[in-house]
């Protein structure tokens, strides 16, 4: 294992301890762009957490051996013909989960920054029926050694404020891609998912569809390999774009509770 791994006993709950999990069809959606280096460890850790978890790697137009590596480890691979960006890539995974009738989906990034051994924390509230979508937040409790560029941290905070104000519930980490979803969450995201920098808009969307979203504190690791899709320079552009999207989204009507679309 690479990077700092949290050593508290609470964060490493084996999937077997989660009552009712084995009855569900469950899938891990792993978006990956040029992550041939980090992917094997991620897949191994997913299997170590829960051997019954189907792993689907969404290869977002990688130019390295990402798809081949994933296939050689027995994962399903959805290879996009060209780079769609993280939103389009992740939604491909949600569509796969929806069409194959999965009960539970978790999203774990292919770069290794999400620690699969903490998935129990995300899955438990979904199993208990307390939430449709559970997001792992770096800031919900004490920010555990999370480091990133200053611009990005400020951006993340500002977005969290704006989103919290709009949805009327405290949201601390609107940019986290470490998530667990039930069927309602899968159906919503399969149908409609934002582009580019999706988590912020998606959070607002979830509340407008009256799905229940909660955060649980997690710690994230340094990236294993590869680079963030969001550099400091582009952060400003994304901030403007996302704020515009949220603002305009407020004026959309006919946002109705999402029923199963089939």
């Amino acid at each position: 294992m690479r990077g700092p791994v949290p050593d508290t006993a609470v964060t490493t709950s084996p999937a077997g301890a989660l009552r009712g999990l084995s009855d569900l069809r469950r899938v891990a959606i792993v978006p990956a762009l040029n992550e041939a280096g980090a992917l094997p460890a991620v897949i191994d850790e997913l299997r170590a957490f829960d051997p019954g978890l189907d792993v689907v790697v969404v290869d977002d137009g990688s130019v390295d051996r990402t798809a081949a590596v994933a296939r050689s480890m027995g994962a399903r691979v959805l290879r996009l013909p060209f780079n769609l960006g993280i939103g389009g890539a992740v939604q491909t995974g949600f569509r796969f989960a929806f069409e194959n009738d999965y009960d539970l989906a978790v999203r774990v990034d292919g770069d290794g920054q999400h620690d699969p051994s903490q998935l129990g924390l995300l899955i438990a509230p979904v199993l208990a029926g307390e939430a449709d979508i559970v997001v792992g937040s770096r800031f919900a409790a004490d920010a555990d050694g999370y480091r990133s560029s200053r611009t990005r941290r400020i951006g993340i905070r500002l977005l969290a404020r704006v989103v919290s104000g709009i949805v009327g519930q405290r949201v601390t980490d609107t940019t986290s891609g470490f998530q667990a979803l039930n069927k309602h969450g899968i159906a919503l995201f399969a149908r409609d998912y934002p582009h580019d920098y999706p988590e912020v808009e998606a959070t607002v969307m979830v509340f407008r569809h009256r799905l229940r979203l909660i955060e649980v504190p997690v710690s994230m690791r340094e990236r294993g390999s590869g680079r963030s899709s969001i550099t400091s320079l582009r952060s400003v552009y994304y901030m403007v774009k996302v704020l515009l999207a949220i603002f305009v989204g407020l004026f959309r009507r006919n946002v109705v509770p999402q029923e199963d679309a089939r």
């Binding site: 515009l244 999207a245 305009v248 004026f251 959309r252």
Partner: peptide, 19 residues
Amino acid sequence: VLELIRSHRLRERYALLWL
């Protein structure tokens, strides 16, 4: 432009320059 975004006929990405 804002109305086009609202009604999903224009993506934010392509609307920024117009705005």
